[in-house]
Computed example of a mutant assay.
Amino acid sequence: MRNYVGAIAAVCLAACGEPGGTDVSSAPGALELTREADGAASGAWGQGEARVRFASRRVESGVYRIEVRQNGMSLTGLVDAEQGVSSLDGFAEDNGQDTQMLDGDRELLAGLYAALGAELPAGSALAPELKYLRRAVGLWAEHPPAVELQRTVMGEQGRGYTMLCGYAKCNGKFTGSCGTTFNWYSYAKHDCQHGGFDLAANQQIAQLGDHATCDGDELYMSGGKWVCGEPDHQSRPKVQGNCFGRCGPGCGGDTQYTVDATNHDGCVRNGHALTSAYCNDQFTAASDDELYAPDCY
């Protein structure tokens, strides 16, 4: 979902001001979003007493600067959409030192991503400033604590990311002509303490898209029946659940289905958590998918 230099200018860390420069007065839980005539966007969103402020603007042709501030942390990104190169960073606001993404940070960012998705639903035409803002927020919302926030991401179709739109037919749902027809992708896979990348215990046969769930969890086939929950390193179980194979936290507002995003899902939904170190390599592999892969619908 589920981030070289040389083509873009370096991000200036010392000069980060208040994104957007606007007074935030929206009620907690409400999204404040200001869009300028030139495409620039800024705003804020709150969850309880926590607040996150954001801004996105074009700094030159095809290059966008993104700033997100929350919990005493500044997150910055310089996204070169034409070259498929991004420079990302995160640091503590009080001293400019390196920091890491913790559970509370991810929760707040995931809430902002969902709010942006509700305001700017899938399929809507977005200015690139909003498109890359939402995608960067989605990427940070899944960022594991052990992966450095300062990094470069490169994306190139066929090398950096491989699309799986054909496995998410009918807008990824059992609707219309799709009915209840399954369209399996083999395999969602990862490597971990249970063995290598290609062992059956580390693979799932996934139904991509937004499908059946049970109490917010997924379903897997066991003994010829659908069972609620996440299989823990079983031998190639068939699985389905909301947003499987889709970049970003939750169902969000983007609809990219890729090999790397599916493998990341197949790691965090197969006996591991989002923060598991065993899934770090899948996360980094899927980072360019999150930022650059096109929407499937």
Rank of each mutant, 00 (worst) to 15 (best):
A141E: 04
C214W: 05
S42C: 13
A141T: 03
D103A: 15
L78M: 13
E119M: 11
R57K: 09
E119R: 15
V79G: 08
D80W: 02
P121E: 02
A293S: 10
T284D: 06
Q204H: 06
A30D: 15
G77H: 04
R57L: 07
L112C: 04
N263R: 07
D98Q: 11
P237V: 05
Y4A: 15
Q70L: 15
Q234F: 07
P128M: 00
V239Y: 05
L102P: 02
G17V: 08
H190D: 11
V24H: 12
T162C: 04
G195A: 05
R51H: 08
L108A: 05
F174T: 07
Q256E: 10
D288P: 11
A27I: 03
Y132G: 00
S25W: 03
S124L: 02
I205G: 10
F54S: 03
T255A: 15
A168G: 12
G39A: 03
V153E: 12
D198M: 09
W226I: 00
S86M: 10
R151D: 06
T162I: 09
I205A: 14
Y187R: 09
V227E: 07
V52L: 10
G111P: 00
V63C: 04
D265Q: 11
T34Q: 13
A286C: 05
P294M: 01
E67M: 08
A118S: 14
G223S: 05
E156L: 12
E36L: 14
W140D: 02
Q234P: 01
N71E: 09
L139M: 12
M73A: 10
R106C: 03
N263V: 01
C165N: 10
T152D: 14
C170W: 06
C228K: 02
A168K: 09
T284A: 08
D210I: 12
T284F: 06
D80V: 01
V5I: 11
N3T: 12
G253W: 03
P231L: 07
A277V: 13
D80I: 02
A118T: 13
W184A: 08
R151P: 01
V227G: 00
A41N: 06
Q207E: 15
A92P: 05
N95T: 04
D215Q: 12
L33P: 06
M163H: 01
T152Q: 13
H194A: 12
E82Q: 14
R57I: 00
H190T: 15
L33V: 10
R58Q: 15
L75A: 09
R151W: 00
S86I: 06
D210N: 14
G29Q: 02
A44K: 03
S26C: 13
